[in-house]
Design a protein around this nucleic acid. Structure first.
Length: 722
DNA sequence: TAGTCCGAGTTTTTT
DNA sequence: ACTCGGACTA
């Protein structure tokens, strides 16, 4: 990393970086390879714009996560005289700094967060009630499920559609197993169509061919889904983009919105999708000042409909675009670069950058053959500690893996050895049912028409299931539109016929909700959650086997709310920018401590560490079994591997466990032998130093590995069993 | 109509 | 290990 405390920021830039940072205006594409200082360049560009007189609040910086925006603006702030003007306006609840005048700050954040803000300001012009609530992907899937049940798609309808031909052929229908897509599939189909702009038929054909027989039912559900979101006053992630696009294209208000910004800068452009590129074009119909930064070799979000075409056809979308390539790598040793260059060389698309460095102090990356996952875990721990002893703190080391659960065993071992760690990616706090339940309370307080919120809350009552919930929602006017009286009031005033529910419990619920609505003095979000928990905690105790972990989560949620200005902000922030790591939740105590970073490769995007350990370099893990359908998917997995490798500055270790015990299918505990990841071709392998762990020092390994004995026993018992 | 139990099938990445 | 759906009971 280049020094920052130079006189002016310009001195720290190489010629290409400087040219990009001081580009006068018009469309600019910065094709920045991994580790070429793209964050710095973008931050400098922001600083440059402000120094040349562009008002901070007329700059829009779109990033992939809010964390990235905050980081970039922090760096820009260090370079200019008035740092406060730069720090992002969308500071989240966890941010400790407050700024005097939010109107004089750069707009920074994700597409979704920025859209949320614009729509609350201008949405009315589209007929959109600015009091909308936002739901995440899982909520969307739940709504799909609701509709799916009502329509009886899972049962009767789909069966009717399929039976005919089969009977004629004399085939036995396999016990009418419902093949109708599940809620998550429905949500993905919908999202894919919206984000890529492809028609339903095409989407099914290309990405969900096994769902084609149910196309008609799917179409009906998707239409109903759209309608239900509208009447509930709820937007999903896709709506945020869609409405932003419509807003920007609308005559009158569209110009108003676009004219807010003299300059738009977009980071990680390779991971934007068709819809996002439409948004940008709509925002830049007249003003051509747009800067995008990206690396086609690091495109890893096609599952979210991101399209590599966006970056490849940027010059067509924005005529007159200048392209600046950044190829000088400041991050990694030459040896690490050789390895990563060799990996990406096997792929043949894009702007074909060749990364180089003049560093000469490197060591060859290590490829560590392990007997099995247990040994891999052991090896990682040993190496991590070794590096710490040699002076590399844990925070400067990261362990990367393809899927959230790949680190499960390692986490157990780290805990056992008292090695502190923080994990990014994988299953998230806000996705757990009990947290969602509490958020559902907040959502109906915020937006009493929020059908899904009511659905969750009412279903909590004893003796209340789907049917009673539906009649409740009708009775208090959640679903039946038109009444001026809020469902909250109606629940409190005349309790609906309880059905199977206990009258007192319904009354208690109504009481909790109205206490949260107290206006003078307005209650803090924390107090509201406290009230909700007085009702909900007992339910957790009754419902779950081990309630304590869940109660702790709720305590965390409560304290998370402390720094939150309003209920609206809290709920929106939780869905648009959920805590990304275990650390975000753990609070201050961890901050001074040293801890190891664990992260999915996706969440590691943009990060860099002195020492990087990549787990499970076996076929089936990298590339994932789930993503070997077609050539494009494989290429994306290759780029994913490339992203993992290029995070390393000084030392890189890639681990390959030869044997897996818990093969997904194997109920008979049969193990399987894995293949080395197909991305480690012979050429690539040559760039590594091979370090077979199990032929190492036997004295060290032997006591730790009881497997061989178990193997022999099993072998013999198999032999005799037939 | 709710709640429970069992068997079958699935298992990624994230705003 | 987990979720989903179907069947069964109260």
């Amino acid at each position: 990393m280049v020094e920052q405390q130079t006189e002016t920021w310009r001195d720290g830039l190489n010629p290409e970086q400087a040219r990009a940072a001081t580009h006068p205006g018009g469309p600019l594409l910065i094709a920045a390879g991994a580790g070429t200082g793209k964050t710095k360049t973008l931050a400098c560009r922001v600083a440059h714009l402000i120094e040349t007189g562009v008002p901070a609040e007329r700059i829009l910086l779109l990033t992939f996560t809010r964390r990235a925006a905050a980081e970039m603006l922090k760096r820009a702030g260090q370079m200019t005289a008035s740092p406060a003007a730069i720090s992002g306006s969308s500071n989240q609840h966890r941010s400790t700094r407050q700024f005097s005048d939010p109107s004089t700050q750069v707009w920074g954040g994700t597409f979704h967060a920025v859209s949320n803000r614009l729509l609350r300001m201008h949405g009315r012009a589209l007929g959109l009630d600015p009091g909308f609530t936002v739901m995440d992907q899982a909520d969307g899937a739940d709504l799909m499920d609701l509709i799916r049940d009502e329509g009886g798609y899972a049962k009767g309808k789909s069966r009717d559609l399929r039976t005919g031909g089969w009977n004629d052929a004399g085939l036995k229908i396999p016990k009418s197993r419902s093949r109708f897509p599940k809620k998550d599939t429905l949500a993905s189909i919908y999202s894919r169509a919206v984000n890529s702009g492809e028609r339903l038929a095409e989407v099914l054909e290309k990405h969900f061919p096994w769902c084609k027989p149910e196309a008609e039912g799917i179409r009906e559900i998707l239409s109903a889904y759209v309608e239900r979101k509208r009447s509930a006053g709820v937007l999903d992630y896709d709506d945020l983009l869609l409405f932003w696009k419509v807003l920007a294209e609308a005559p009158g208000v569209g110009e108003l919105v676009a004219d807010r910004f003299d300059h738009i800068l977009v980071d990680e452009y390779q991971d934007t999708n068709h819809l996002q590129s439409d948004v940008l074009r709509a925002m830049r119909k007249t003003n051509p000042n747009i800067t995008v930064v990206g690396d086609d070799a690091q495109a890893i979000y096609s599952f979210r409909s991101a399209s590599i075409d966006n970056i490849l056809s940027f010059p067509d979308h924005f005529p007159g675009a200048e392209i600046i390539k950044l190829e000088r790598n400041y991050r990694s040793s030459a040896e690490i670069l050789s390895t990563s260059n060799a990996v990406i060389a096997e792929s043949h698309i894009g702007y074909g950058k060749q990364l180089w460095t003049d560093r000469t102090d490197g060591r060859k990356p290590g490829l560590i053959d392990c007997l099995d996952e247990e040994q891999q875990t052991h090896q990682v721990c040993e190496r991590v500690l070794e590096h710490r002893e040699r002076g590399v703190p844990l925070t400067h080391q990261a362990v990367l893996f393809r899927a959230g659960h790949h680190s499960a065993q390692l986490e157990i071992e780290l805990t056992r050895r008292n090695i502190p760690f923080v994990k990014y990616g994988g299953l998230k706090f806000v996705e757990s049912a009990h947290v969602k339940d509490v958020i559902a309370f907040l959502r109906i307080l915020e937006n009493p028409r929020d059908e899904l919120g009511w659905w969750r809350v009412l279903n909590l009552l004893d003796g209340v299931g789907p049917a009673t919930t539906r009649s409740f929602m009708n009775a208090i006017g959640v679903t039946s539109n038109g009444s001026e009286i809020s469902p909250l009031t109606r629940l409190a005033e005349d309790l609906p016929a309880p059905g199977g529910a206990k009258r007192e419990q319904v009354a208690a619920l109504a009481d909790v909700l109205s206490r949260c609505m107290e206006e003078s003095p307005a209650l803090s979000v924390t107090s509201q959650i406290e009230i909700i928990r007085s009702f909900y905690d007992p339910i957790v105790h009754r419902r779950y086997e081990a309630p304590h972990a869940r109660i702790r989560d709720l305590e965390q949620l409560e304290s998370l709310a402390e720094s939150s200005k309003s209920r609206e902000r809290f709920v929106v922030d939780l869905t648009l920018d959920p805590p990304a790591s275990t650390q975000d939740l753990a609070g201050p105590p961890l901050i001074d401590e040293d801890y190891l970073i664990l992260s999915t490769v996706h969440s590691a995007k943009g990060g860099e560490w002195d020492v990087v350990h990549v787990l499970h370099a076996a076929d089936g893990m990298i590339p994932s079994d789930m993503a070997t359908g077609d050539a494009d998917e494989i290429e994306e997995e290759r780029r994913l591997f490339y992203v993992a490798l290029t995070r390393a500055k000084n030392d890189l270790y890639v681990y390959f466990p030869l044997r897996y015990y818990h093969r997904p299918r194997g109920l008979d505990d049969a193990h399987g032998y894995a293949q080395l990841s197909r991305f480690i071709t012979p050429t690539v392998k040559d760039t590594f130093e091979l370090q077979p762990a199990f032929t190492g020092s036997p004295a060290e390994e032997a006591p730790l590995d009881h497997r061989p004995v178990a193997e022999v026993t099993k072998y013999l018992s198999d032999l005799f069993s037939i």
